[in-house]
């Protein structure tokens, strides 16, 4: 059974002009010890999915439909208190985007990790929590004695490691990493990705890796879900999707990522820009930018269909063939 099963997740943000349909009818699952890559451009709803899973949406955000089944319980029905006691940090934890700036500069790193531990496990004493923080530092490859340093004494890569340590503080089963490689230099990024892969193996962690960079996802994940304008367009095993992308958006996105090892070639871009999610296009949300648009694409929303084992696509082209 899957550790996490998201079914028809729909999240809207209410603003003055109406509802921003940030995530609509998104379904995926993550198995124990498996890493899922959530890919897409900025504004496609990747981060909103992560925030919905932990129910930490901003005040104007709301899960309007769908189920999030984690370890057999539907967490959309849990109260705020239950979420804090049972799910957040112990079940699912999150490494925020721009983690290097997510640490509070006026507190020692140790204080911040101890706080995270004691908020979710109030019975743990300060000394125990500090000891645990030191062990976590060792796990993520920082000298344990540096746990009492302030964030400014750390380099970017170390801060990212400290954030990973903090996310692991209460032994979560699922770790969500939002853009873990962005804003880091290539070498440091490779070190962090390697660390995440090692942790996944050692702790049998499940992971959701959110990134706009398909090469990072190809590097670390077992399966991937490609999002466009709040919808899932293609989902399945990573090799299936990269070797045989079926949705025109996935095809475009993959061609927009040149490999450093291939011959010099002209780069590919998808014409147009992503739509306004206040009034998303009718039918398939990608149709205004798609080169294969048919009449049906403008009228009808394509359902997500399984085209081969572990490979789902939402496109009329695929359905009709």
């Amino acid at each position: 059974m899957a550790l996490l099963d998201v079914k028809g997740l729909t999240t809207y943000y209410e603003i003055m002009r109406g509802y921003v349909k940030a995530v609509e009818n998104v379904s995926f699952s993550v198995k124990k010890g498996e890493a899922l890559g959530l890919a897409g451009e900025s504004g496609c709803g990747k981060t909103t999915v992560a925030l919905s899973l932990l129910k930490i949406l901003p005040a104007n955000g709301k899960i309007v439909a769908g189920k999030i089944i984690f370890n057999g319980t539907d967490i959309t029905k849990l109260s705020e208190n239950e979420m804090r006691q049972k799910i957040r940090w112990k079940g699912i934890s999150l490494i925020f985007q721009g983690a290097m700036n997510a640490l509070n500069p006026v507190y020692r790193v140790s204080d911040q990790i101890v706080e995270a531990i004691r908020t979710h496990e109030p019975h743990v004493s300060k000394e125990e929590a500090l000891e645990r923080a030191e062990k976590l530092f060792e796990l993520v490859g920082i000298e344990p004695s540096r746990v009492t340093n302030y964030p400014h004494e750390f380099s970017g890569g170390m801060r990212q490691r400290a954030m990973i340590a903090m996310a692991l503080a209460c032994n979560p089963q699922l770790l969500i990493a939002d853009e873990p490689g962005t804003a880091l230099d290539v070498i440091v990024q490779a070190q962090i990705l390697k660390l995440l892969k090692e942790l996944k193996q050692r702790l049998n962690l499940s992971m959701i890796l959110i990134s706009h960079d398909l090469s990072i996802i190809a590097e670390t994940c077992d399966s991937t879900a490609i999002m466009y304008a709040g919808k899932l367009v293609e989902y399945g095993n990573i090799v299936n999707i990269f070797k045989r992308p079926l949705h025109p958006y996935t095809q475009g996105l993959i061609s927009a990522f040149p490999s450093i090892h291939s011959e010099r070639q002209r780069m590919y871009s998808i014409p147009g820009s992503p739509p306004d999610l206040l009034n998303p296009p009718s039918g398939c949300r990608f149709h205004p930018r798609c080169q294969y648009t048919m009449e049906i694409c403008k009228r009808e929303e394509p359902p997500l269909v399984e085209v081969e084992s572990d490979h789902y696509v939402a496109c009329h082209l695929v359905k009709s063939s």
Partner: peptide
């Protein structure tokens, strides 16, 4: 060069 991730899940993985 070895640290640059490649957009191909079957390619040789990056090395640190």
């Amino acid at each position: 060069m070895r640290a640059v991730p490649v957009p191909d899940p079957t390619a040789r993985r990056t090395e640190v």
